[in-house]
């Protein structure tokens, strides 16, 4: 739900302000790759209606955001292309190699799924780099990144709950480790987010 909220916040910003200033297209494209490689089981592995609908929402909204940033006349002009310089392959290639080495089962679907877990953990990095370079971070962008970080932190709590409360729940070291790293990457951002919130000041990251 927090993940869904983050997407709503981002779409709200882009749609109402007709601006994607401070939003990293690189992160959005990495997320698109994360969802495509993770949800390859969309039609073969039915978990629940909720699960299927959320998968479709995550996939379509991410491609919608990318379309807005690349294709929409006004939104495209507000994109900080010169600042958003992170290279995709710096993250994609190491994650691919890691997925080929560390996975639970050597099948195409399983390796791609593992790749998506690793890539998700670091997909925020281009956004954090852009954020540090952006002088005026608007509230919606700040809250968007907060929700994006919060959903994995909440997963950590959920994993602990499931581990102790569910009978048939097995240890998932790959997901847990990646989730911990993903949350840790946001630690610095969370710190400044709460600091600015407490002081009622505009969010600003130190250079």
């Amino acid at each position: 739900m927090t993940h869904l909220a983050s997407i709503c916040l981002l779409l709200l910003k882009i749609h109402t302000m007709k601006s994607c200033a401070g939003v990293s297209l690189k992160t959005q494209e990495l997320y698109a790759l994360v969802f495509v490689t993770r949800y390859l089981d969309l039609f073969s592995n039915f978990v629940s209606m909720y699960n299927t609908i959320m998968k479709i929402i995550f996939l379509s909204s991410t491609f919608g955001i990318i379309w807005y940033m690349r294709g929409h006349k006004l939104v495209r002009q507000s994109y900080d292309k010169e600042q958003d310089t992170f290279r995709h392959y710096f993250l994609v290639i190491p994650c691919m190699v890691l997925a080929l080495v560390i996975h639970s089962k050597f099948t195409l679907l399983e390796v791609l799924w593992t790749f998506s877990i690793y890539l998700e953990a670091v997909a925020i990095l281009p956004q954090l780099v852009l954020l540090q370079r952006t002088r005026n971070i608007d509230n919606l962008t700040g809250n968007y990144i907060f929700c994006l970080g919060a959903y994995r932190a909440l997963y950590l709590l959920n994993w602990i709950y499931r581990y102790f409360m569910e009978k048939n729940y097995h240890a998932q070291w790959i997901t847990w480790m990646a989730g911990m790293i993903q949350t840790a990457i946001y630690a610095d951002f969370f710190y400044y987010y709460f600091k600015s919130w407490k002081k009622n000041e505009r969010l600003k990251l130190p250079a």
Binding site: D41, S48, N51, S104, K105, E110, W113, Q172
Partner: peptide, 10 residues
């Protein structure tokens, strides 16, 4: 053989 991870999360 290693089992695949259960995939009921998003």
């Amino acid at each position: 053989e290693d089992a695949a991870v259960q995939k009921d999360e998003l």
